[in-house]
C-alpha cells in the first residue's frame, strides 16, 4: 500500500501509447494510471498532446501503438489485462469485474459500455435544444430500452412515462446543482459561456459515467467561476465517487483539486505524481516557463506563490 490510488487501485491504465499523424508524433510512448476516485490532472504546455491522448482514451482516435485498459470498478490486474490482450476480444468479465481494452472499441461503445463520459475543449452542446433536453439526451442509453426501442413510447405505455419522469428528475437535480434550473427550457446555445461549460459537465454526469474526462473545463472562465468549478468538481467526486480525469491550464484549479498530476511535454510524459511532487519538479517548471536552468529559482517561487490556496 502506497496510499496513492493510481498505484493501489487504478481503474484506467494507459500503456505505452503512441499516436502518430503521418510524420508527426503527437503522443510518444506515454504510460500512466488513473486511480479510482481520484481527480487526475493531465497538464502540459500547448501542443503537448494532451487532447490527442484524450481522444485516444475516448475512442475518437485509434492509438498507433499501445494499450489502454479500463475497469469501471477499479482494481486493474496486470495478469487479466495480458490475458485479454492475447485474445481478439474487447472486454471480459470472467474475473468478476468488467475489463475493457479501449483501443479496440469505437467511441460510442466506450461511452456506452465502459461508461467513460467526456466534455470538449470547444464546447459541444446541442445548442438548438433546451438545457433540459441536453441532459435527457445524455440518458439515451438508459431510456432507449425503457421506450421499448420506440414502440412502447409510441403507444404511451406507463412504464416508459415512469422512466422518462425519472430521467427528468435526474436532469432537474443537475440543473439545480449548476444553478440553471431557471433556464431549463432555454436553448443551450443561448446560455452564457460559463453556464455552457457547467451544463456540458452536467450532461456528461447524466450519462452516469465511471470516469469523467474533462477537456479544459476552466478555459474561458474568470477567477470566480474557476473557483466555483473547482468546488463543483470536488463535490461531484465526493458524492458520486466518479473518477475524474481533466486537462487543465489553470494551475490554481489543478493544484487545488487534483490528487494526481501527469505532465506531458512534446508528446512525452515528463512527470507523474502528487501535485506537490510535480510542482517541485524542475523539468516541469522548465517545460512550463521555458526558462534556462539558472532562472529556475525565481520562476519556481512564482509558481508556488500563484498556486497557494
Amino acid at each position: 500500500m502506497t496510499g496513492f490510488a493510481w498505484i493501489d487501485d487504478p481503474l484506467l491504465r494507459v500503456d505505452r501509447v503512441t499516436m502518430r499523424f503521418g510524420g508527426l508524433t503527437a503522443v510518444n510512448d506515454v504510460s500512466f494510471s488513473v486511480g479510482r476516485g481520484d481527480i487526475t490532472a493531465l497538464i502540459g504546455p500547448n501542443g503537448a498532446g494532451k487532447t490527442t491522448l484524450f481522444n485516444c482514451l475516448t475512442g475518437f482516435y485509434k492509438p498507433t501503438v499501445g494499450r489502454i485498459a479500463f475497469s469501471p470498478k477499479g482494481g486493474l490486474d496486470d495478469d487479466r489485462i495480458d490475458e485479454l490482450t492475447a485474445t481478439a476480444r474487447r472486454n471480459s468479465n470472467d474475473g468478476g469485474e468488467d475489463l475493457y481494452l479501449l483501443e479496440r472499441m469505437a467511441d460510442f461503445e466506450i461511452a456506452k459500455k465502459a461508461r467513460i463520459a467526456r466534455t470538449f475543449q470547444n464546447i459541444r452542446l446541442f445548442s438548438g435544444m433546451s438545457a433540459l433536453e441536453n441532459l435527457i439526451v445524455a440518458q439515451h442509453i438508459a431510456l432507449t430500452p425503457a421506450s421499448g426501442y420506440g414502440v412502447f413510447g409510441l403507444i404511451g405505455l406507463p412504464s416508459y412515462r415512469r422512466a422518462e419522469s425519472e430521467a427528468v428528475e435526474r436532469a432537474k437535480k443537475w440543473l439545480e446543482r449548476i444553478g440553471l434550473r431557471r433556464r431549463a427550457d432555454d436553448p443551450a446555445g443561448a446560455l452564457p459561456y460559463g453556464d455552457q461549460r457547467r451544463l456540458e459537465i452536467a450532461r456528461a454526469m447524466c450519462a452516469n459515467p465511471a470516469l469523467l474526462c474533462l477537456d479544459e473545463p476552466a478555459a474561458g472562465l474568470n477567477a470566480n467561476e474557476s473557483h466555483g468549478l473547482a468546488t463543483l468538481l470536488r463535490e461531484i467526486r465526493g458524492e458520486s465517487g466518479v473518477s475524474i480525469l481533466l486537462i487543465e491550464h489553470d494551475m490554481a484549479v489543478v493544484m487545488a483539486i487534483s490528487d494526481h498530476v501527469v505532465v506531458l511535454d512534446y508528446g512525452q510524459k515528463i512527470a507523474d505524481g502528487s501535485p506537490l511532487e510535480v510542482r517541485e519538479n524542475p523539468a516541469v517548471i522548465a517545460a512550463y516557463l521555458g526558462v534556462e536552468d539558472e532562472e529556475l529559482g525565481p520562476a519556481e517561487a512564482e509558481l508556488t506563490a500563484e498556486t497557494k490556496p
Binding site: 475516448t58 475518437f60 467511441d107 460510442f108 461503445e109 461511452a111 456506452k112 459500455k113 463520459a117 467526456r118 470538449f120 459541444r124 452542446l125 446541442f126 445548442s127 438548438g128 435544444m129 433536453e133 435527457i136 439526451v137 445524455a138 439515451h140 442509453i141 450532461r203 456528461a204 450519462a207
Partner: peptide, 17 residues
C-alpha cells in the same frame, strides 16, 4: 431526441454513447 441531437452535434452524440 437522438435525431435532433445528431443534427446539432454528431461528435457530442458519440461521446454520450
Amino acid at each position: 431526441r437522438a435525431w435532433e441531437a445528431l443534427r446539432e452535434d454528431e461528435i457530442a452524440c458519440r461521446a454520450l454513447g
